[in-house]
């Protein structure tokens, strides 16, 4: 039986956020916005969903006088991301 795909990760923008965060120590909101090409509003909503699921942490702070949000993948997020990739590979193997 094929594993179920995590619905939280099976969304284009949330998956892109997780993919970026999986390869870096942490990333600013501005960097995530540039890399994904998403609007600020949509990105904020998706970051909130990932934060609620404890897949990432989002720390709000200041850089100089400007507010900045720094996102970081958690251990739970790394495990979920790895499971999701494994599930995708299982789907591909079955479909061949």
């Amino acid at each position: 039986m094929l594993p179920k795909l995590d619905p939280l990760l099976h969304s284009e923008l949330r998956l892109a956020i997780m993919s970026i965060l999986a390869g870096v120590e942490s990333a600013d909101f501005t960097f995530l916005k540039e890399q994904t090409g998403a609007t600020s509003g949509n990105l904020s909503v998706q970051i909130d969903k990932l934060t609620t699921a404890q897949y990432i942490t989002a720390e709000k702070g200041f850089k100089g006088k400007l507010p900045c949000t720094t996102c970081k993948i958690t251990q739970t997020g790394q495990e979920a991301f790895a499971r999701y990739v494994d599930a995708l590979q299982a789907y591909l193997v079955t479909s061949k």
């Binding site: 099976h10 892109a16 993919s19 970026i20 590979q89």
Partner: peptide, 24 residues
């Protein structure tokens, strides 16, 4: 990039690979 929950397995893997590479 906006919401899209209709990705195939191959599309999802491509997205992961492209995003990781672009970030790198």
């Amino acid at each position: 990039m906006e919401q899209n929950n209709e990705m195939t397995a191959q599309e999802s893997l491509n997205l992961i690979s492209e995003t990781l590479n672009a970030s790198r």
